[in-house]
Design a protein around this nucleic acid. Structure first.
Lengths: 107, 107
DNA sequence: TATATGCGCAACTATTCGGTTTCGCAACTA
DNA sequence: TAGTTGCGAAACCGAATAGTTGCGCATATA
């Protein structure tokens, strides 16, 4: 039960669902039409996504529309930030190396 | 066996291992000391991380040093890019709304 | 050479996961 | 009212997962 966002995006079907509901709010049936799987299976994925607040639900009559909670996606971005700093630092180092090589060549 | 990077980072222990080897190359034993688990379990995680090229190995005598392949982390960043565009667009929209409200107030 | 160390691999186990089928309930609709 | 539709929940199943223990092998050390 201990869901976290990284586990939520680990499954390819769930990433596809996220991509779908990012564009517009959709019902489980509408989502399931995009996949080679049952509505119930999609409902299970939606429950997992809802549990970690990646999607929001809005009831309209007997239909439930699911939409992406884009704010939650920032958590991944925040986690990634520490590593972004590393690869940007590496890139700068590479730039410096290229500078030195350039100067060596000019001599 | 069908590993992808999203599955690799789904496990909290693996994310912790990534954070460790991001700072410096480490042996399985050294890594295992940081966790409440066996070296063999760490080895399994390292194998998964290596399978999807998130870590590199370098043999030194009977020791193997694992280090982070930071380039691979960019794949997550690339996936996130589409959603970053969404939340940045939302932020701009919010800015516009605030502008309109401000002008309304001034009238 | 004998022993200790660092490691991966294989076998086994309990748990989780993603899927299906079946069901019941609420809400539309004829 | 009777029948249909949309949905979540529960029970079940096979596969994958994360962990363990017990090896064997290569390397370092006495």
């Amino acid at each position: 039960m201990r869901r976290d966002i990284f586990q939520a995006i680990a499954d390819p079907t769930r990433r596809a669902i996220i991509a779908l509901v990012a564009l517009q709010a959709m019902t489980p049936n509408a989502i399931a039409e995009h996949f080679d799987t049952s509505r119930q299976a999609v409902s299970k994925h939606l429950r997992i996504l809802a549990e970690c607040q990646l999607v929001a639900q809005e009831q309209k009559g007997r239909e439930i529309f699911y939409s992406l909670e884009i704010e939650k996606m920032k958590e991944i971005d925040e986690w990634l930030e520490q590593y972004r700093q590393i690869w940007e630092a590496r890139y700068e180092q590479l730039g410096e190396v290229l500078e030195v090589m350039k100067k060596q060549k000019e001599k």
